[in-house]
Design a protein around this nucleic acid. Sequence first.
DNA 1: CGTTAGATTCTCT
DNA 2: GAGAATCTAACGC
Length: 209
Amino acid sequence: MPVVPRSFFARSAEDVAPDLLGCLLVRESAEGRRILRITEVEAYSGPLDPASHGYRGKTPRNAVMFGPPGHLYVYFTYGMHFCINFVCSPEGECSAVLIRAGEIVEGIEAARGARPGSSDRDLARGPARLTKALGLYREDNGLDLCDGGPLTVLQRASADFTIATGPRVGVSSAAEVPWRYWIEGDPTVSAYKAHKPKVRKNASSATAS
DNA sequence: CGTTAGATTCTCT
DNA sequence: GAGAATCTAACGC
């Protein structure tokens, strides 16, 4: 299977995202080789997308998104989780595809070691789970996907599945845009969860009447 | 299998 | 200081 070239990523995220479904993500590390078949992604597109980290311009955190395509953008969220994106669009533009879920097809023992207690189906079912199952962390931010390094994407052989689309997960703005893509019927695709406002237990301040 | 509630650190305003 | 592109445990069927 051919390696995905940088030109593959030099398009808008909405175009790249569905083409990534069924592709293989090859992760080489000290724990061995792990291969993930991508089953669910989301597009985050440019300055016009209020849900994108790049919506309000370049910051130290999202700088990689404004760089050349074919690189890895790793971000930290909810105080405990990492998630990975593939940077798209030509350099200077800002868009990316969030890798939400997949199926471990090789190196499942290394993935189990990274996520003990999880069933095989749940190993990479969700963006933060997937990132942990592959052993990726903040230090992998900016990694080049096209230089034959520790992370490479292989093009799928054929699209023998149905692509479904819908609203993105956990996003409160632009919820009407169907920029989530997944392989219909695949068990490793996460159940759709709409954005839920968080209720904090805040005992110190006024428990109103 | 489904839904619901709590956890916990970084980032930008 | 408030909110965040989430996960896990717990409970009910």
